[in-house]
Simulated scan of single mutants.
Amino acid sequence: MLLRYLLFIDFDNTLHDTDSKYISKLDGLLGYSGSFLWDSFMNRIHRMVHVNFPERHDDLRFHVELLLEALGERATPRNIERFMKALDEAEKACWMDPAYFPEALDFLRRAKEAGYVLCLTTGPNSAPKAKTLEEKLSFKVFDYVFGEDVLGCLKSEPEYYRKALEAADGLPHLTVVVGDTLSTDIAPAKMVGLKTIWVNRKGLDPRDARVKPDYTVKDLDEAFKCILRLFPISSKG
């Protein structure tokens, strides 16, 4: 019987340097650096909203109002509009002017040539992310494209991975998740019984993580070697 190995591959900060787009667009607003604003937005505001106001997860204006409050700045219509415009431009730049990591495209080529089933597993805007990437590579990369907009649930929820697995007709023990974020890529996937590879590009101390991935790598080159050990090509067929 032919074994069917699935790779659930994250987009933002795994294949694509999404942080750089937001940092660039936010830089200089109200005199703050882009890196400070983006870190504050993601690690203070977005996480707090996710925990305390999950129903407002996609409410960008609410996020911006909370960010301005946290910064001690006035939430004037002009300030809110400036931040929302910068965030919207950064989001669109991820597929209109992408910045893929140096090894990302080769990783996808090798994984596709090896015969793995490639599934894009991302948050919003899954279709344009996949389309632009496939245009860059000039071949159909993904067998399946999944996003929060497609599956109808947040990526931080185990249900996201259950639905993706069902839609791709996959088996948990033959599926591995490749992603950079412990809270949305690793933790919920492990709850569904999937193998996990944490792409720790920022060199964070894994001992500080509450969630323990099955494997930790520094980039996608190491991730591919890990996948070959986990799902040896020679065992297929």
Rank of each mutant, 00 (worst) to 15 (best):
I186L: 03
A93N: 10
L174C: 12
E65M: 03
F231W: 11
K85M: 05
K236N: 10
F83C: 05
K195G: 06
P102V: 05
Y22W: 05
R109H: 10
K131N: 06
I186D: 06
K225G: 15
P124V: 10
D39W: 00
G31C: 13
S40K: 12
H16I: 05
K218L: 13
D214R: 04
S20Q: 13
F146T: 01
L204C: 03
L29P: 06
F41H: 07
S24V: 05
V177E: 06
L26H: 07
A90Q: 10
S235W: 11
N79F: 03
N79Y: 00
K21R: 03
L26T: 08
L154Q: 07
R207K: 13
E159D: 02
A187H: 02
F41E: 02
E55H: 12
F8V: 05
T196R: 01
K21N: 06
D208S: 15
E157H: 00
H50D: 14
M191K: 15
T121W: 01
L137W: 06
L194N: 12
T175L: 01
D143N: 14
I227G: 08
R4Q: 13
P98Q: 09
V117D: 04
H57E: 07
L37D: 08
K25E: 15
T175F: 00
L66M: 14
F146I: 01
L87W: 11
